[in-house]
Amino acid sequence: MEPNRKIYLITGHYGSGKTNLAVNLALRERAAGKTVTLVDLDIVNPYFRSADFAPMLADAGIRMVSPMYANSNLDIPALSGAVDAVFDNGGDCVIMDVGGDDAGAIALGRYAPAIARHNYEFWYVVNCCRYLTQTPEEALSVLREIQVVARLQPTGVVNCSNLGEETTTAIVEQSVPFAQKVADLAGIPVKCTAYDKKLAPLKVPDPFPVEIFVKKPWDSAEEE
């Protein structure tokens, strides 16, 4: 065990909000004065990934490790040797943004022995508005598929329930029992509820107001 380095594994169903959570977590840890490495470990998603935010993260002093051909025109899911190095020199905090479902979490399994040597959090991100994980039982079965290929045990559920641009405070508040049920079924705690910080402060346990970084090309101009 190397207690000085904390590793966060961000896993979950496609579109549950993993990337946006990973970027916010990296910025939060960095703001707390820690040295942070964000690893884009997504080998299944061609667009909307942590690597999109590399320049912004670099400005914030966060180190970014991406798949070799991320955001290029090559459809080759090759992970860099730099991923192995983060376990030895990734700074105080290493955040791994893992691809969706078990298909994406396969990439994690390869690093399981190295991760297990550290103090790690294996977070399972849930979103009750996602079509195929609307019941806690469905969400649990996706977690089970992920943990088999990840070859590690989950340590907590993160509630990222949202309906994209139509998210309301009611949607977030009503998702709390859902996340708790998933956690109860899995035998792990709910770590936090992440929600768009533009919503009013919410009465949810362990709130984590986040900035929405993952946007569509036409959303950028709306805010100028």
């Binding site: 496609y14 579109g15 979103n127 508005c129 996602r130 079509y131 195929l132 609307q134 949202n162 309906l163 994209g164 139509e166």
Partner: peptide
């Protein structure tokens, strides 16, 4: 009810 879906998933489900 409203759901959050990826375009490709919506193509298939529809």
């Amino acid at each position: 009810e409203k759901f959050l879906m990826k375009g490709n998933e919506a193509l298939a489900e529809a």
